[in-house]
């Protein structure tokens, strides 16, 4: 019988370029003081491996970086409390992981840069800032080193970026085109995502966005509850993102 582990481990077309962009984005966030939150609810070993890779580099002289494996049984509640605007979220899972899907959807409201590493059928386009996905190896990638390779290379390339400090500053990233039309804080105020913190009183609710805590008018969206994701424009919640409701 053919051994599934014998298949080539070379990355799929397009993954190398996405690894490059992910590493630069990650290095820029670390340079600005980010913590990396590692989430792999069903595959906890991968969250721990990503975290130990960044915290305790195997190559002497590379800097230790703050990365944390989130092993809370309720990772959304934990991340909501722990993660701050500017942090990085790295998930490792298949596309059907409910906690990962939920965390990815909330990441823009929490101000997080999101990376999602996985294999097999792909998640919908745009759900993460960076999708590092292998089309092959759905059944074996968790165990045969294919996913480990992805975050090993992410770590290696991130440290290459630290050798280019001029490209890690806020002004360097501001020179490049904004690719995230709803979350980018350097863009206009068109429909920024936010998470409702407390239900509205007299049509005013507290929400959390990438800019921090804000109060918004909820006349247009009605009875939102804590945890709902809304789009905010000019101090008004203009729409509820329904897919985040359980």
């Amino acid at each position: 019988m053919a051994n599934p582990a014998d298949r080539s481990l070379a990355v799929d077309p397009g993954v190398a370029g996405e690894l490059a962009r992910s590493a630069l984005a990650t290095a820029r966030r670390f340079a600005a003081g980010a913590t990396m939150w590692c989430l792999a609810p069903a595959w906890l070993e991968h969250a721990r491996h990503v975290a130990v890779e960044f915290v305790h580099p195997v190559i002497v002289g590379k800097r230790a970086l703050p990365a944390v494996a989130v092993d809370d049984p309720d990772p959304i509640t934990a991340l909501r409390a722990l993660a701050r605007t500017g942090d990085v979220l790295v998930a490792v899972s298949d596309r059907d992981s409910r906690p990962v899907i939920d965390a990815m959807r909330r990441a823009p409201a929490w101000g997080l840069t999101s990376l999602w590493i996985g294999a097999g059928p792909r998640p919908p386009t745009g759900v993460a800032d960076h999708l590092l996905w292998l089309d092959q190896g759905e059944g074996s990638a968790r165990h045969d080193g294919a996913l480990v390779l992805m975050y090993h290379v992410l770590w290696e390339l991130t440290h290459v970026c630290f050798e280019h400090p001029g490209l890690l500053t806020a002004s360097a990233s501001a020179n490049e085109p904004c690719v995230d039309e709803v979350a980018c804080i350097t863009c206009s105020d068109e429909g920024r995502p936010a998470e409702v913190v407390s239900a509205p009183i007299a049509d005013v609710a507290a929400v959390r966005s990438a800019r921090g805590l804000e109060t918004v008018d909820t006349t247009l969206v009605g009875d939102v509850v804590a945890g709902d994701l809304v789009l905010v424009h000019a101090g008004t919640a203009i729409a509820v993102l329904e897919e985040t409701r359980p």
Partner: peptide, 13 residues
């Protein structure tokens, strides 16, 4: 830099 990183990723893979 992004070009270099991409080539490096492919070489490592």
């Amino acid at each position: 830099l992004l070009d270099d990183l991409e080539q490096s990723a492919e070489a490592k893979a």
